[in-house]
Amino acid sequence: MNNINGANLERLIEQIVGAVMAELSKKDGAPEQNPRDITTQESRKHILLQNPRDAQALARMKTRTNARIGVGRTGARYNTQTLLTLRADHASARDAVFLDVSQKILDDLGLFTANSRCASKNEFLTRPDLGRQLDEESCAKIRASCVLNPDIQIFATDGLSSTAISANLPDLLPCLLDGLKNKPAVVGTPFFVKNGRVGIMEPVSELLGARVTCVLIGERPGLATAESMSAYIAYNARVGMEEALRTVVSNIHANGVPAVEAGAYLADLLYRVCEAKASGINLRRTSAK
């Protein structure tokens, strides 16, 4: 392509246009019946790279990482599908942050709603300190509606992903409560807090006089999943407690730890924290003995 003169260029363009038109007319007759959902796990497995040297090996590599490998490129740019998938995943992540947990899910689980001191999502994002406090009205509501001085207090909050709560709580919470039924511990009344951060477990614990507090919270969504939920657990949680005293179980979602299994596991873990009278690094120490 060293000497592109006018005539050559014209011929080249003609060729390209011809090829593109031929390609288009081929597809014209058979429009895709079901446009693929490009955000599913299935479509992630799809290899977009053209003519890979070893398609099998690439498929295996893709099973081991969430990174977008083997997607090919056009010049220095992504291919259209890669770009669209990225945008779709980013949209899911934004939805997870900005949408609310559906009222129906909370109703089905029999959870009432309390509020942090954040009046809006915007305030929630810009004022982390307010997300760690309960508003006054909610304090009264919680005190009036809940079993006081429970051994184990469980509540959920949307955190940075309401999607995670919608996706996992309906399966996790019943498993967790079932698992605690035959343990000799007083289990508090579960509820939901809107616009809460992890630290809101401390005022909740103080308000109810709980021994063990567990908050189920949506994790900051990434481009791999927007549905990941965590459980933060603390013994005798008090405002200003050290972060190291929290026990964490993260990565609860359909492609991580399944919600039902996490529920069953958390039941045992919460009881262990209650028995050991310790959480976080202190729990590590007691179990190492």
């Binding site: 698992g179 069953a264 596991y265």
Partner: peptide
Amino acid sequence: ESDTALALGRMIEA
């Protein structure tokens, strides 16, 4: 095979 043994086991145990 799937990671659900504790949850299922507890339900059957109950």
